[in-house]
Amino acid sequence: MNFDELKNQWGREIIPYQSIPPLELKRSNNAIDKVRRNMKNDFWGLIVMLIIGLAALVLVPYLIFVHQILLFVAWSFYITFSIIAVFFLLKFYRFYKKSYKLSYSMKDNLWWFYYELRSFIDFYYTFNLVALIMGLSCGLSLGYIGANLKFVKGEDNLISKSMDHIGDLLPFFLLFMVVFTIMMMVGLYYAINYLYGKHLKQLKITLDLLRDNNEF
């Protein structure tokens, strides 16, 4: 195969007429912009969830009677979760903004994006796990305290006495919790992989191909 001849042919190749497309794209189709789009959706999704949570906490006591202790527990969880969520959202926003200014003119920028995305995915997974654990803890606490209030109302030492009532159900309940948690974690893993992981993998494969052979 004569590559010099091929090079000449390449240079002489007749290019069909090609008009210049509009400079603004409605929907970019590259890995980086897809990640950014997913991030934007997740960002607003989390904010909407926080607002709905806040609205529920404020409005529900007006609509139905809720015991003070239940409100106290719910607010405690909400505030703690909000603080973690705000910290996460700030980090999230910083990465999103920085990646917008990302110029495609340097391969280093692709590496930067790769490493940032990788740490973002780890952080996002951890955040979701924390949210899951907090959600479960909150649900359990509210359920447990609510059950105590209902069944042994007016007596002292409510929590320990109520154990007699739910003791028989405990093994099933624990099994359900374990299965539920595992299912949620697996679901979370696949969801994050679908939204971000596959793009990270694509970037890694491409960038690895550029490495020096003796770097491995």
Binding site: N29, N30, S103, Y104, Q202, T206
Partner: peptide, 26 residues
């Protein structure tokens, strides 16, 4: 970000190649 320190075509090769590398095929 193109500062004109190199030829437009040189800069263009780089941006276009990087775009091709991260492009998601349909």
């Amino acid at each position: 970000s193109f500062q004109g320190k190199s030829l437009f075509s040189t800069w263009m090769y780089r941006v276009a190649l990087n775009t091709s590398l991260v492009y998601v095929k349909k």
